[in-house]
Design a protein around this nucleic acid. Sequence first.
DNA 1: CGTTGACTTGAAGGTATTCAAGCTTTGTGG
DNA 2: CCACAAAGCTTGAATACCTTCAAGTCAACG
Lengths: 217, 217
Amino acid sequence: MIAYSTSRAPQEIRSFDKSRAEPVSFALKQSQPALFFPAGSEIYGQGEKAGNLYQVEFGAVRVYRLLSDGRRQISAFHLAGETFGFEANSTHHSFAEAIVGTGIHAFCLPTGADFSRELLPLALRGMTRAQEHLLVLGRQNAIERVAAFLVDMAERQGGLNEVELPMSRQDIGDYLGLTIETVSRIFSRLRSKGIIKLRGLRTVEISRLATLEAMCE
Amino acid sequence: MIAYSTSRAPQEIRSFDKSRAEPVSFALKQSQPALFFPAGSEIYGQGEKAGNLYQVEFGAVRVYRLLSDGRRQISAFHLAGETFGFEANSTHHSFAEAIVGTGIHAFCLPTGADFSRELLPLALRGMTRAQEHLLVLGRQNAIERVAAFLVDMAERQGGLNEVELPMSRQDIGDYLGLTIETVSRIFSRLRSKGIIKLRGLRTVEISRLATLEAMCE
DNA sequence: CGTTGACTTGAAGGTATTCAAGCTTTGTGG
DNA sequence: CCACAAAGCTTGAATACCTTCAAGTCAACG
Protein backbone atom coordinates (compact mmCIF):
# COMPACT_ATOMS: atom_id res chain seq x y z
CA MET A 1 0.00 0.00 0.00
CA ILE A 2 1.21 3.48 -0.84
CA ALA A 3 0.37 6.84 0.71
CA TYR A 4 -0.39 9.60 -1.77
CA SER A 5 -0.51 12.74 0.35
CA THR A 6 2.09 15.50 0.21
CA SER A 7 0.19 18.75 0.22
CA ARG A 8 1.48 22.26 0.53
CA ALA A 9 -0.28 25.56 -0.09
CA PRO A 10 -0.18 27.13 -3.57
CA GLN A 11 1.49 30.49 -4.13
CA GLU A 12 0.67 33.29 -6.50
CA ILE A 13 2.92 33.74 -9.54
CA ARG A 14 3.18 36.45 -12.15
CA SER A 15 4.61 35.19 -15.43
CA PHE A 16 3.96 32.09 -17.56
CA ASP A 17 4.39 30.64 -21.01
CA LYS A 18 1.38 30.91 -23.34
CA SER A 19 2.56 28.68 -26.21
CA ARG A 20 0.40 25.72 -27.33
CA ALA A 21 -2.47 26.70 -25.02
CA GLU A 22 -6.02 25.42 -25.52
CA PRO A 23 -8.21 28.40 -26.43
CA VAL A 24 -10.04 30.04 -23.52
CA SER A 25 -11.76 33.38 -23.92
CA PHE A 26 -10.22 36.60 -22.67
CA ALA A 27 -13.16 37.33 -20.40
CA LEU A 28 -12.61 34.09 -18.51
CA LYS A 29 -8.88 34.62 -18.27
CA GLN A 30 -9.30 37.86 -16.35
CA SER A 31 -11.17 36.32 -13.47
CA GLN A 32 -8.36 34.77 -11.39
CA PRO A 33 -4.60 35.14 -10.92
CA ALA A 34 -2.15 32.38 -11.82
CA LEU A 35 -1.00 30.22 -8.91
CA PHE A 36 2.09 28.15 -8.23
CA PHE A 37 1.52 24.65 -6.84
CA PRO A 38 4.58 22.90 -5.37
CA ALA A 39 5.28 19.29 -6.36
CA GLY A 40 2.72 16.97 -4.77
CA SER A 41 0.29 19.68 -3.70
CA GLU A 42 -3.45 19.21 -4.17
CA ILE A 43 -5.34 21.39 -6.66
CA TYR A 44 -8.73 19.99 -5.78
CA GLY A 45 -10.09 16.93 -4.00
CA GLN A 46 -12.88 14.42 -4.51
CA GLY A 47 -16.19 15.68 -3.15
CA GLU A 48 -15.14 19.33 -3.25
CA LYS A 49 -17.41 21.87 -4.88
CA ALA A 50 -16.36 22.38 -8.51
CA GLY A 51 -16.77 25.58 -10.49
CA ASN A 52 -13.29 26.53 -11.58
CA LEU A 53 -11.60 25.70 -14.84
CA TYR A 54 -7.83 25.25 -14.71
CA GLN A 55 -5.19 25.78 -17.35
CA VAL A 56 -1.64 24.55 -16.89
CA GLU A 57 0.90 27.30 -17.56
CA PHE A 58 3.96 25.15 -16.89
CA GLY A 59 4.59 21.87 -15.09
CA ALA A 60 2.27 18.85 -15.00
CA VAL A 61 -0.88 17.66 -13.26
CA ARG A 62 -2.32 14.22 -12.47
CA VAL A 63 -6.06 13.62 -12.11
CA TYR A 64 -7.00 10.41 -10.31
CA ARG A 65 -9.52 8.37 -8.37
CA LEU A 66 -8.99 6.04 -5.44
CA LEU A 67 -10.54 2.77 -4.31
CA SER A 68 -11.24 2.48 -0.61
CA ASP A 69 -8.16 0.28 -0.09
CA GLY A 70 -5.87 2.86 -1.70
CA ARG A 71 -5.57 1.51 -5.24
CA ARG A 72 -5.22 4.50 -7.53
CA GLN A 73 -6.15 5.09 -11.15
CA ILE A 74 -4.82 8.19 -12.86
CA SER A 75 -7.35 9.10 -15.54
CA ALA A 76 -5.26 11.82 -17.16
CA PHE A 77 -2.05 13.82 -17.10
CA HIS A 78 -2.25 17.48 -18.05
CA LEU A 79 0.77 19.31 -19.48
CA ALA A 80 1.43 22.97 -20.28
CA GLY A 81 -1.40 24.58 -22.24
CA GLU A 82 -3.98 21.94 -21.35
CA THR A 83 -7.26 22.59 -19.56
CA PHE A 84 -9.01 20.52 -16.91
CA GLY A 85 -11.32 20.68 -13.92
CA PHE A 86 -14.87 20.80 -15.29
CA GLU A 87 -17.14 18.20 -13.71
CA ALA A 88 -20.73 17.02 -13.79
CA ASN A 89 -23.07 18.07 -10.93
CA SER A 90 -20.64 20.83 -9.88
CA THR A 91 -18.79 18.34 -7.68
CA HIS A 92 -15.28 16.98 -8.20
CA HIS A 93 -15.29 13.21 -8.69
CA SER A 94 -11.50 13.05 -8.82
CA PHE A 95 -8.39 14.46 -7.18
CA ALA A 96 -6.01 16.76 -9.02
CA GLU A 97 -2.40 17.27 -7.90
CA ALA A 98 0.67 19.01 -9.22
CA ILE A 99 3.27 16.39 -10.20
CA VAL A 100 6.14 18.88 -10.22
CA GLY A 101 6.18 22.57 -9.40
CA THR A 102 3.30 23.79 -11.57
CA GLY A 103 1.87 27.13 -12.61
CA ILE A 104 -1.88 27.07 -13.00
CA HIS A 105 -4.33 29.69 -14.14
CA ALA A 106 -7.74 29.26 -12.50
CA PHE A 107 -10.90 30.60 -14.14
CA CYS A 108 -14.07 31.22 -12.26
CA LEU A 109 -16.88 29.77 -14.38
CA PRO A 110 -20.06 31.78 -14.85
CA THR A 111 -23.05 29.60 -15.74
CA GLY A 112 -23.90 31.42 -18.97
CA ALA A 113 -24.63 29.76 -22.31
CA ASP A 114 -21.61 31.47 -23.89
CA PHE A 115 -19.30 29.56 -21.64
CA SER A 116 -21.11 26.29 -22.28
CA ARG A 117 -20.39 26.80 -25.93
CA GLU A 118 -16.75 27.35 -25.16
CA LEU A 119 -16.49 24.43 -22.74
CA LEU A 120 -18.27 21.78 -24.79
CA PRO A 121 -15.37 21.15 -27.22
CA LEU A 122 -12.98 20.79 -24.27
CA ALA A 123 -15.32 18.35 -22.53
CA LEU A 124 -15.79 16.32 -25.71
CA ARG A 125 -12.05 16.13 -26.31
CA GLY A 126 -11.64 14.88 -22.74
CA MET A 127 -14.25 12.21 -23.33
CA THR A 128 -12.59 11.06 -26.56
CA ARG A 129 -9.29 10.74 -24.71
CA ALA A 130 -10.95 8.80 -21.90
CA GLN A 131 -12.45 6.38 -24.44
CA GLU A 132 -9.07 5.87 -26.10
CA HIS A 133 -7.60 5.17 -22.69
CA LEU A 134 -10.36 2.65 -21.99
CA LEU A 135 -9.25 0.69 -25.05
CA VAL A 136 -5.66 0.73 -23.77
CA LEU A 137 -6.60 -0.46 -20.27
CA GLY A 138 -9.19 -2.98 -21.37
CA ARG A 139 -7.57 -4.61 -24.36
CA GLN A 140 -3.82 -3.92 -24.57
CA ASN A 141 -0.96 -5.73 -22.86
CA ALA A 142 1.84 -4.13 -20.88
CA ILE A 143 4.18 -3.36 -23.76
CA GLU A 144 1.37 -1.94 -25.88
CA ARG A 145 0.25 0.26 -22.98
CA VAL A 146 3.71 1.71 -22.43
CA ALA A 147 4.14 2.21 -26.19
CA ALA A 148 0.81 4.06 -26.37
CA PHE A 149 1.83 6.21 -23.42
CA LEU A 150 5.18 7.17 -24.94
CA VAL A 151 3.65 7.94 -28.34
CA ASP A 152 1.01 10.11 -26.68
CA MET A 153 3.57 11.99 -24.59
CA ALA A 154 5.77 12.53 -27.65
CA GLU A 155 2.83 13.93 -29.65
CA ARG A 156 1.80 16.25 -26.84
CA GLN A 157 5.35 17.59 -26.55
CA GLY A 158 5.36 18.65 -30.20
CA GLY A 159 6.57 15.44 -31.80
CA LEU A 160 10.18 15.75 -30.67
CA ASN A 161 12.01 12.45 -30.28
CA GLU A 162 13.28 13.56 -26.85
CA VAL A 163 10.41 13.19 -24.38
CA GLU A 164 10.35 14.59 -20.87
CA LEU A 165 8.41 12.50 -18.35
CA PRO A 166 7.59 14.72 -15.37
CA MET A 167 5.88 11.82 -13.57
CA SER A 168 7.33 8.92 -11.57
CA ARG A 169 7.17 5.24 -12.52
CA GLN A 170 4.44 4.92 -9.89
CA ASP A 171 2.40 7.58 -11.70
CA ILE A 172 2.93 5.87 -15.05
CA GLY A 173 1.91 2.53 -13.54
CA ASP A 174 -1.21 4.03 -12.00
CA TYR A 175 -2.07 5.61 -15.34
CA LEU A 176 -1.57 2.40 -17.33
CA GLY A 177 -3.02 -0.03 -14.80
CA LEU A 178 0.37 -1.67 -14.19
CA THR A 179 2.83 -1.98 -11.30
CA ILE A 180 6.02 0.08 -11.17
CA GLU A 181 8.02 -3.12 -11.63
CA THR A 182 6.21 -3.96 -14.85
CA VAL A 183 6.65 -0.42 -16.17
CA SER A 184 10.34 -0.59 -15.36
CA ARG A 185 10.73 -3.97 -17.04
CA ILE A 186 8.98 -2.76 -20.20
CA PHE A 187 11.21 0.33 -20.34
CA SER A 188 14.22 -1.99 -20.10
CA ARG A 189 12.82 -4.23 -22.84
CA LEU A 190 12.19 -1.30 -25.18
CA ARG A 191 15.72 -0.06 -24.46
CA SER A 192 17.33 -3.44 -25.15
CA LYS A 193 15.41 -3.64 -28.43
CA GLY A 194 16.85 -0.26 -29.46
CA ILE A 195 13.43 1.38 -29.66
CA ILE A 196 14.11 3.95 -26.94
CA LYS A 197 17.09 5.29 -25.05
CA LEU A 198 16.91 6.40 -21.42
CA ARG A 199 18.85 9.68 -21.29
CA GLY A 200 17.94 10.04 -17.63
CA LEU A 201 15.29 8.60 -15.36
CA ARG A 202 12.78 11.16 -16.60
CA THR A 203 14.09 11.69 -20.13
CA VAL A 204 13.37 9.24 -22.95
CA GLU A 205 14.76 9.43 -26.46
CA ILE A 206 12.53 7.68 -28.96
CA SER A 207 14.86 6.10 -31.52
CA ARG A 208 12.24 4.26 -33.57
CA LEU A 209 8.92 6.09 -33.33
CA ALA A 210 7.33 4.11 -36.16
CA THR A 211 8.00 0.83 -34.35
CA LEU A 212 6.49 2.25 -31.19
CA GLU A 213 3.42 3.51 -33.07
CA ALA A 214 2.94 0.13 -34.75
CA MET A 215 2.80 -1.49 -31.32
CA CYS A 216 -0.36 0.33 -30.26
CA GLU A 217 -2.64 0.00 -33.29
CA MET B 1 -10.61 -13.62 -33.43
CA ILE B 2 -14.27 -12.63 -33.64
CA ALA B 3 -16.16 -10.84 -36.38
CA TYR B 4 -18.46 -8.06 -35.22
CA SER B 5 -20.49 -7.14 -38.30
CA THR B 6 -24.20 -7.87 -38.65
CA SER B 7 -25.78 -4.78 -40.13
CA ARG B 8 -29.29 -4.24 -41.41
CA ALA B 9 -31.07 -1.02 -42.31
CA PRO B 10 -33.07 0.85 -39.62
CA GLN B 11 -36.82 1.32 -39.98
CA GLU B 12 -39.07 4.15 -38.92
CA ILE B 13 -41.28 3.60 -35.86
CA ARG B 14 -44.13 5.57 -34.34
CA SER B 15 -44.47 4.96 -30.60
CA PHE B 16 -42.00 4.74 -27.71
CA ASP B 17 -41.72 4.95 -23.93
CA LYS B 18 -40.67 8.32 -22.47
CA SER B 19 -40.13 7.36 -18.83
CA ARG B 20 -36.75 7.99 -17.20
CA ALA B 21 -35.47 9.94 -20.20
CA GLU B 22 -32.52 12.33 -19.98
CA PRO B 23 -33.85 15.86 -20.59
CA VAL B 24 -33.59 17.10 -24.17
CA SER B 25 -35.36 20.26 -25.28
CA PHE B 26 -38.59 20.15 -27.25
CA ALA B 27 -37.09 22.07 -30.16
CA LEU B 28 -34.45 19.40 -30.67
CA LYS B 29 -36.95 16.58 -30.38
CA GLN B 30 -38.96 17.82 -33.36
CA SER B 31 -36.12 17.57 -35.81
CA GLN B 32 -36.06 13.84 -36.66
CA PRO B 33 -38.39 10.84 -36.52
CA ALA B 34 -37.73 7.82 -34.28
CA LEU B 35 -36.11 4.84 -35.97
CA PHE B 36 -36.05 1.12 -35.31
CA PHE B 37 -32.66 -0.58 -35.47
CA PRO B 38 -32.71 -4.40 -35.62
CA ALA B 39 -30.38 -6.37 -33.34
CA GLY B 40 -26.78 -5.98 -34.47
CA SER B 41 -27.39 -3.09 -36.84
CA GLU B 42 -24.99 -0.16 -36.98
CA ILE B 43 -26.14 3.27 -35.80
CA TYR B 44 -22.93 5.02 -36.78
CA GLY B 45 -19.38 4.03 -37.60
CA GLN B 46 -15.88 5.23 -36.77
CA GLY B 47 -14.77 8.01 -39.09
CA GLU B 48 -18.31 8.98 -40.07
CA LYS B 49 -19.39 12.59 -39.88
CA ALA B 50 -21.09 13.26 -36.54
CA GLY B 51 -23.78 15.84 -35.90
CA ASN B 52 -26.71 13.88 -34.57
CA LEU B 53 -27.60 13.26 -30.97
CA TYR B 54 -29.35 9.96 -30.22
CA GLN B 55 -31.76 9.01 -27.47
CA VAL B 56 -32.67 5.38 -26.79
CA GLU B 57 -36.47 4.90 -26.65
CA PHE B 58 -36.31 1.16 -25.94
CA GLY B 59 -33.71 -1.56 -26.35
CA ALA B 60 -29.96 -1.17 -25.81
CA VAL B 61 -26.89 0.17 -27.61
CA ARG B 62 -23.18 -0.61 -27.40
CA VAL B 63 -20.51 1.98 -28.22
CA TYR B 64 -17.07 0.57 -28.96
CA ARG B 65 -13.64 0.95 -30.49
CA LEU B 66 -11.51 -1.62 -32.27
CA LEU B 67 -7.80 -2.33 -32.46
CA SER B 68 -6.45 -3.19 -35.90
CA ASP B 69 -6.33 -6.90 -35.03
CA GLY B 70 -10.00 -6.94 -34.04
CA ARG B 71 -9.76 -6.63 -30.25
CA ARG B 72 -12.79 -4.69 -29.12
CA GLN B 73 -13.41 -2.38 -26.17
CA ILE B 74 -16.98 -1.37 -25.42
CA SER B 75 -16.80 2.05 -23.76
CA ALA B 76 -20.46 2.23 -22.82
CA PHE B 77 -23.87 0.59 -22.96
CA HIS B 78 -26.89 2.86 -23.39
CA LEU B 79 -30.32 1.82 -22.14
CA ALA B 80 -33.79 3.33 -22.56
CA GLY B 81 -33.84 7.06 -21.85
CA GLU B 82 -30.11 7.56 -22.24
CA THR B 83 -28.45 9.89 -24.72
CA PHE B 84 -25.29 9.37 -26.78
CA GLY B 85 -23.57 10.26 -30.02
CA PHE B 86 -21.91 13.66 -29.45
CA GLU B 87 -18.24 13.67 -30.46
CA ALA B 88 -15.28 16.00 -30.64
CA ASN B 89 -14.28 17.41 -34.06
CA SER B 90 -17.67 16.41 -35.53
CA THR B 91 -16.29 12.96 -36.35
CA HIS B 92 -17.27 9.67 -34.74
CA HIS B 93 -14.34 8.04 -32.98
CA SER B 94 -16.38 4.95 -32.08
CA PHE B 95 -18.95 2.57 -33.49
CA ALA B 96 -22.50 2.39 -32.16
CA GLU B 97 -24.72 -0.65 -32.67
CA ALA B 98 -28.11 -1.82 -31.49
CA ILE B 99 -27.64 -4.83 -29.19
CA VAL B 100 -31.26 -5.94 -29.50
CA GLY B 101 -34.10 -4.46 -31.52
CA THR B 102 -33.86 -0.80 -30.49
CA GLY B 103 -35.92 2.33 -30.97
CA ILE B 104 -33.82 5.45 -31.31
CA HIS B 105 -34.77 9.07 -31.62
CA ALA B 106 -32.19 11.04 -33.62
CA PHE B 107 -31.82 14.80 -33.15
CA CYS B 108 -30.16 16.99 -35.71
CA LEU B 109 -27.81 19.28 -33.77
CA PRO B 110 -27.74 22.98 -34.64
CA THR B 111 -24.47 24.66 -33.64
CA GLY B 112 -26.06 27.34 -31.47
CA ALA B 113 -24.93 28.27 -27.98
CA ASP B 114 -28.31 27.23 -26.53
CA PHE B 115 -27.67 23.66 -27.48
CA SER B 116 -24.14 23.73 -26.13
CA ARG B 117 -25.64 24.69 -22.82
CA GLU B 118 -27.99 21.73 -23.02
CA LEU B 119 -25.34 19.29 -24.18
CA LEU B 120 -22.59 20.17 -21.71
CA PRO B 121 -24.16 18.36 -18.73
CA LEU B 122 -24.66 15.25 -20.85
CA ALA B 123 -21.06 15.36 -22.07
CA LEU B 124 -19.77 15.86 -18.52
CA ARG B 125 -21.83 12.97 -17.21
CA GLY B 126 -20.40 10.80 -19.97
CA MET B 127 -16.88 11.80 -19.00
CA THR B 128 -17.50 11.03 -15.31
CA ARG B 129 -18.76 7.57 -16.29
CA ALA B 130 -15.73 7.00 -18.50
CA GLN B 131 -13.43 7.93 -15.60
CA GLU B 132 -15.23 5.54 -13.27
CA HIS B 133 -14.85 2.83 -15.87
CA LEU B 134 -11.12 3.60 -16.16
CA LEU B 135 -10.76 2.82 -12.46
CA VAL B 136 -12.56 -0.50 -12.96
CA LEU B 137 -10.43 -1.53 -15.94
CA GLY B 138 -7.15 -0.27 -14.55
CA ARG B 139 -7.31 -1.34 -10.94
CA GLN B 140 -10.01 -3.94 -10.26
CA ASN B 141 -9.85 -7.72 -10.67
CA ALA B 142 -12.35 -9.90 -12.52
CA ILE B 143 -14.83 -10.40 -9.70
CA GLU B 144 -14.79 -6.71 -8.77
CA ARG B 145 -15.37 -5.76 -12.40
CA VAL B 146 -18.38 -8.03 -12.77
CA ALA B 147 -19.74 -6.82 -9.42
CA ALA B 148 -19.38 -3.19 -10.52
CA PHE B 149 -21.13 -4.01 -13.79
CA LEU B 150 -24.09 -5.70 -12.09
CA VAL B 151 -24.47 -2.91 -9.52
CA ASP B 152 -24.42 -0.32 -12.30
CA MET B 153 -26.99 -2.21 -14.38
CA ALA B 154 -29.24 -2.64 -11.34
CA GLU B 155 -29.08 1.09 -10.56
CA ARG B 156 -29.83 2.06 -14.14
CA GLN B 157 -32.86 -0.22 -14.18
CA GLY B 158 -34.40 1.55 -11.22
CA GLY B 159 -32.81 -0.41 -8.39
CA LEU B 160 -34.87 -3.57 -8.86
CA ASN B 161 -33.18 -6.76 -7.73
CA GLU B 162 -34.15 -8.44 -11.00
CA VAL B 163 -31.77 -7.19 -13.70
CA GLU B 164 -32.20 -7.70 -17.44
CA LEU B 165 -28.95 -8.03 -19.38
CA PRO B 166 -29.70 -7.32 -23.04
CA MET B 167 -26.09 -7.97 -24.02
CA SER B 168 -24.20 -11.23 -24.55
CA ARG B 169 -21.32 -12.56 -22.43
CA GLN B 170 -19.03 -11.43 -25.25
CA ASP B 171 -20.35 -7.88 -24.91
CA ILE B 172 -19.90 -7.96 -21.15
CA GLY B 173 -16.37 -9.28 -21.57
CA ASP B 174 -15.50 -6.58 -24.08
CA TYR B 175 -16.93 -3.96 -21.73
CA LEU B 176 -15.01 -5.24 -18.69
CA GLY B 177 -11.76 -6.12 -20.45
CA LEU B 178 -12.23 -9.86 -19.79
CA THR B 179 -12.83 -12.99 -21.88
CA ILE B 180 -16.27 -14.59 -22.09
CA GLU B 181 -14.92 -17.60 -20.18
CA THR B 182 -13.83 -15.43 -17.27
CA VAL B 183 -17.17 -13.60 -17.22
CA SER B 184 -18.98 -16.93 -17.19
CA ARG B 185 -16.79 -18.31 -14.40
CA ILE B 186 -17.36 -15.21 -12.27
CA PHE B 187 -21.13 -15.46 -12.77
CA SER B 188 -20.93 -19.06 -11.60
CA ARG B 189 -18.82 -18.07 -8.59
CA LEU B 190 -21.28 -15.33 -7.58
CA ARG B 191 -24.12 -17.82 -7.99
CA SER B 192 -22.45 -20.52 -5.88
CA LYS B 193 -21.82 -17.91 -3.17
CA GLY B 194 -25.53 -17.08 -3.14
CA ILE B 195 -24.97 -13.47 -4.17
CA ILE B 196 -26.90 -13.71 -7.43
CA LYS B 197 -29.32 -16.15 -9.07
CA LEU B 198 -29.42 -16.73 -12.82
CA ARG B 199 -33.13 -16.75 -13.71
CA GLY B 200 -32.22 -17.15 -17.38
CA LEU B 201 -29.12 -16.48 -19.45
CA ARG B 202 -29.99 -12.81 -19.67
CA THR B 203 -31.84 -12.36 -16.38
CA VAL B 204 -29.99 -11.97 -13.07
CA GLU B 205 -31.60 -11.77 -9.66
CA ILE B 206 -29.40 -9.95 -7.17
CA SER B 207 -29.92 -11.68 -3.83
CA ARG B 208 -27.36 -9.76 -1.81
CA LEU B 209 -26.90 -6.30 -3.29
CA ALA B 210 -24.94 -4.99 -0.30
CA THR B 211 -22.36 -7.74 -0.70
CA LEU B 212 -22.06 -6.95 -4.39
CA GLU B 213 -21.67 -3.23 -3.68
CA ALA B 214 -19.01 -3.88 -1.06
CA MET B 215 -16.98 -5.76 -3.68
CA CYS B 216 -16.45 -2.71 -5.87
CA GLU B 217 -15.49 0.02 -3.41
C1' DC C 1 -35.68 -33.71 -33.71
C1' DG C 2 -31.48 -32.13 -35.33
C1' DT C 3 -28.71 -28.03 -35.94
C1' DT C 4 -26.78 -23.79 -34.61
C1' DG C 5 -25.12 -20.41 -31.56
C1' DA C 6 -24.37 -19.06 -26.90
C1' DC C 7 -22.84 -20.37 -22.64
C1' DT C 8 -20.33 -23.24 -19.11
C1' DT C 9 -16.63 -25.88 -17.27
C1' DG C 10 -11.98 -28.02 -17.08
C1' DA C 11 -6.90 -28.17 -17.78
C1' DA C 12 -2.73 -26.10 -19.27
C1' DG C 13 -0.19 -22.12 -20.13
C1' DG C 14 1.31 -17.21 -20.13
C1' DT C 15 1.59 -12.59 -18.49
C1' DA C 16 1.64 -9.46 -14.88
C1' DT C 17 2.04 -9.25 -9.83
C1' DT C 18 4.18 -9.93 -5.48
C1' DC C 19 8.04 -10.30 -2.67
C1' DA C 20 12.76 -9.43 -2.16
C1' DA C 21 17.25 -7.64 -2.95
C1' DG C 22 20.38 -4.49 -5.01
C1' DC C 23 21.34 -0.28 -7.55
C1' DT C 24 21.04 4.77 -8.75
C1' DT C 25 19.82 9.30 -8.00
C1' DT C 26 18.70 13.10 -5.09
C1' DG C 27 18.88 15.77 -1.16
C1' DT C 28 20.92 17.04 3.35
C1' DG C 29 24.24 17.96 6.81
C1' DG C 30 28.85 17.99 8.11
C1' DC D 1 32.64 18.96 -1.58
C1' DC D 2 31.95 14.59 0.41
C1' DA D 3 29.31 11.22 3.17
C1' DC D 4 25.27 9.50 4.30
C1' DA D 5 20.39 8.77 4.12
C1' DA D 6 16.23 8.44 1.75
C1' DA D 7 13.59 7.82 -2.12
C1' DG D 8 13.01 6.07 -6.58
C1' DC D 9 14.22 2.71 -9.87
C1' DT D 10 15.74 -1.90 -11.65
C1' DT D 11 16.16 -6.79 -11.67
C1' DG D 12 15.27 -11.65 -10.24
C1' DA D 13 12.41 -15.55 -8.55
C1' DA D 14 8.10 -17.36 -7.16
C1' DT D 15 3.27 -16.93 -7.31
C1' DA D 16 -1.41 -15.71 -8.76
C1' DC D 17 -4.76 -14.58 -11.91
C1' DC D 18 -6.60 -14.52 -16.23
C1' DT D 19 -6.35 -16.42 -20.84
C1' DT D 20 -6.18 -19.97 -24.18
C1' DC D 21 -7.49 -24.23 -25.84
C1' DA D 22 -10.72 -27.81 -25.63
C1' DA D 23 -14.78 -30.31 -24.62
C1' DG D 24 -19.33 -30.46 -23.21
C1' DT D 25 -24.03 -28.44 -22.04
C1' DC D 26 -28.09 -25.72 -22.83
C1' DA D 27 -31.48 -23.08 -25.43
C1' DA D 28 -33.65 -21.36 -29.53
C1' DC D 29 -35.34 -22.37 -34.02
C1' DG D 30 -36.37 -24.46 -38.35
